[in-house]
Design a protein around this nucleic acid. Structure first.
Lengths: 252, 252
DNA sequence: GCTTGACATTGACGTGACGTCAACGTTTAG
DNA sequence: CTAAACGTTGACGTCACGTCAATGTCAAGC
């Protein structure tokens, strides 16, 4: 008693293509092949097929199914291993779902600009890559975790201080102040205080940035237009850099 | 200011292969290509790459990422659709986990064994390989063909006898019986009768197993946790072994 | 015997996002 | 000058089939 490929496919609730595939990979070969090349399957094959489909529904892959059916592997063991993998996958999904949800929330809150452009990317925390390249991964991580751990309100307050400082810099530059004058020096002092309060800043443990870091930062403000933009373009940034350098020479 | 392919790869935390792939599919083309064919990327490309990786981490596919970045698709909409898909996947996983868990439970509880594993492989017929290795291919073949030739109803009846015997063993062990006591001896007698009625068992022609086989079987019950499980774990199996050994000494 | 429709075959491509050689040219540091 | 490091293109592999394409076979009705 045997059936054609379509017959068992329907009997077992699968497709003929799947059966051919199982034949190819040796998971379930036809019990007989006609002279015309047709595949025929008997009841043994049907039973095996049903087991295969059961295991497949449990999510096992073809190699695992083959092992289990061959008895080379304990059923319970295989299923436990598979269960473990399933649970890990679920955890991964949970994390991803959480990520996507918070991302959507941020966007819907209308604070997208706030959150994305301003809060999460200002000044030296804006460009993870550069910061890491210049001062190492740890510096970025420290600074980033510090920032992330702040409340939104604190972040906004902080942003205001930074914006105010940048505005004062611009004003001083526009007024034609002397980068080595007392006004500029005061601004540089504020800048140093500001930086020194950020964990991750080289020298932050001492409350103020290291001389090298401070000078290098000033150079970067000029060299990189994205940073320069914060201080009114290259011209403003140049003023800031010079002032910072002067301050560093005398106070760091 | 531009970087080589390895540079941005490291900066952004990905691989050069991925960047080439993004170039191929048009998701992120190099900002410049040298006369030597080298790919170079500038800051714009870096920013775009960082966005791509962000969206990728959220689980979006390349086509979706491309659409979002091209602005042809609303970010929130895309993320919501993706979220929906993620949740469906999670549900699917949950169902599969539940399936696998119940399957394992059934197997452990011995219920499913009735339908699938028990009828086709219980006790010493369950592990073809071991049986063949220990007592020869013929022993297995005999026992197996005998089992296969039984009607399903007879198999079920047989299974009940075996299950009952196993349960009685467990009860006796749990009750703290003496493995050399009369109760244990009676159980061992039933066990011997049971084995003796199975063709293929060494000594079966005499209606009872050989002493060596009987003792060896008891040892195996303890040594192999898969068999021990039939008698309530190693502790129960140890009781069974001791009782079988005592019986073998005096009656075989 | 012929047509028709259902069913069969093998072969090959597509899927998703890259990993991983292979074979070979280019840049850079010592 | 050489070796190491880095670059290129091209192509195959992944996983379990779905989906054509081109073609042969069977059963039934005329």
């Amino acid at each position: 008693m045997d059936w054609s490929i379509q017959d068992i496919a329907r009997l077992a609730g699968t497709t003929s293509r799947t059966l051919r595939h199982y034949g190819e990979v040796g998971l379930l070969v036809p019990s007989r092949i006609g002279s015309n090349g047709y595949r025929y399957y008997d009841e043994q094959a049907l039973v095996r097929l049903q087991r295969v489909l059961m295991l497949r529904d449990l999510g096992l892959g073809i190699p695992t199914i083959a092992e289990v059916l061959a008895g080379h592997r304990d059923n319970a063991e295989a299923l436990l291993a598979h269960l473990h993998w399933l649970q890990q996958e679920k955890e991964r999904l949970d994390r991803q779902i959480a990520s996507v949800e918070t991302t959507i929330q941020k966007m819907e809150g209308g604070e997208q600009l706030m959150a994305e452009e301003m809060l999460n990317g200002f000044d030296h925390t804006e460009y993870k890559a550069e910061v890491e390249q210049r001062w190492g991964t740890k510096a970025y991580a420290d600074s980033n975790s510090w920032w992330s751990s702040m409340s939104k309100a604190d972040q906004v307050t902080w942003m205001h201080r930074q914006k105010q400082l940048a505005a004062d810099w611009q004003a001083a530059a526009a007024a034609g102040e002397d980068p080595r004058g007392t006004a500029a020096l005061a601004l540089a002092q504020r800048q140093a205080d500001w930086l020194g309060s950020i964990p991750g800043t080289p020298g932050a443990t001492a409350g103020r940035p290291t001389k090298e870091y401070f000078v290098g930062l000033g150079d970067m403000y000029v060299a990189d237009e994205r940073f320069a933009a914060n201080y009114g373009g290259v011209k403003g940034a140049t003023f800031v850099r010079d002032a910072m350098r002067a301050y560093a020479e005398s106070h760091l």
